[in-house]
Design a protein around this nucleic acid. Structure first.
Lengths: 219, 219
DNA sequence: TTTGTATTCAATTGATCTATTGAATAAGCT
DNA sequence: AGCTTATTCAATAGATCAATTGAATACAAA
């Protein structure tokens, strides 16, 4: 094999990763798995896809080396192959955010109307949480919270937020977070909290990024 | 538009980037453009593609926001939209390297046989070049060298290396680099230099990574 | 104005991808 | 053993992609 061909073969392998990332449903599945290991049916439910379709997408991700599996009885559990997969997804998202006007438009039109304030940086949140100045609110579903969350965070899934507002102290600002930098749940939570007169802001990224940064987590 | 839909729309936009990265020829074009701006016909030549095919791929990259263009007379010049595109490509390559056995196999079988030594880190090369201990050798084609190169590097394109060996001092170790971390040219150069009794190693990454790291460049 | 050159556009063909459907496989329970 | 459940496999139809071809467009030179 000549040098020219090995280069093209290498790039063909790199393109396999690009292919795995070329479908919206698969990107969402990656983000869900970044919260922790899940079974196929759990993923299918949260992604709103059929089990067969979810399984097909997982096979694609697996062939691209992005996920691994373990079996437990009837169930098969998938997880990401490493933190580098999350970092790659975030790199891709940052590029899209910077260079695709449609992304900026969606963010401006639908996300920024819910929270136009600057998000809180992870290091700032860490300091303020340690000083007891803020309430750290995880708005993901409880299974995701159980798989891992920011140290000291409390879990109120978004759909329970209205009913459980009394659990939040009006004395403390609330910093809400969820699955990643574009997670709509935390935007919605912030908007609702503010409607009820609470001071609320969003963490800049989500649980996966906090964990990868080596900041304190619990499970 | 409900929250569920804005999330899916956002992920559809992210998937557009994945699509742009799902073809080997387009990935190669990105790496070529990371060396500096090029015209369509120059890209077509170096990529070994027809002009029409190259143009089509460039339109795909442009629609994905990854490249921009300027016109100069009859010619159209393309460049990457930002350094973040290179960083994203490198993130993708690192994931492939870590998780796709085929990549490891290609590297082991065809690249490591040419250079099984550890590559030189950028910071180490910078220090040693400043101390005058090494010769920094750029083995890319001259147009790429002219667009930008490591400060103090000399340019001997790979296909001229045999004829210009006398330009390299046997007293100094040679550190060769080219377009990126998987650039076959520098592997070939190192192998040839060693065959002729010179001490030679490879830089870990390429010119684009050196530049992005803020290290000294010239053009 | 005519000719030449660089690039894009549009159409075509064959390849590949995605969601769906239902069968097949594997595991658990009675 | 029979029934249930979770997942994968295989086939299908429609959508999308990639390379090629030749026409169209834009620019330059004589």
């Amino acid at each position: 094999m000549s040098s020219g061909n090995v280069k093209h073969d290498l790039f063909a392998q790199f393109a396999r990763i690009g292919k795995a990332l070329s479908n919206a449903n698969r990107l969402e599945i990656i983000e869900f798995l970044a919260q922790g290991e899940r079974s196929v049916d759990a993923l299918a439910q949260i992604a709103g896809l059929s089990i067969a379709n979810t399984s097909q997408h997982l096979q694609q991700l697996r062939q691209a080396g992005l996920v691994t599996l373990r079996k437990d009885g009837q169930r098969v559990y998938y997880r990401l192959s490493g933190d580098d997969v999350v970092q790659m997804l975030n790199s891709l998202r940052a590029v899209a955010d910077r260079h695709l006007t449609e992304v900026a438009h969606l963010v401006t039109t639908y996300l920024d109307t819910k929270d136009h304030l600057e998000p809180v940086l992870a290091q700032d949140l860490l300091a303020r949480a340690r000083a007891g100045e803020v309430t750290v609110l995880d708005v993901r579903p409880p299974e995701e919270f159980a798989a891992g969350h920011l140290q000291g965070a409390i879990n109120i899934p978004l759909n329970e937020l209205e009913a459980r507002l009394n659990e939040l102290s009006p004395e403390h600002e609330v910093v809400a977070y969820c699955r990643g930098p574009y997670c709509v749940l935390s935007y919605d939570a912030v908007a609702r909290l503010r409607e009820r007169g609470l001071r609320a802001r969003r963490l800049q990224d989500g649980y996966p990024e906090w964990k990868i940064a080596g900041l304190p987590v619990e499970s």
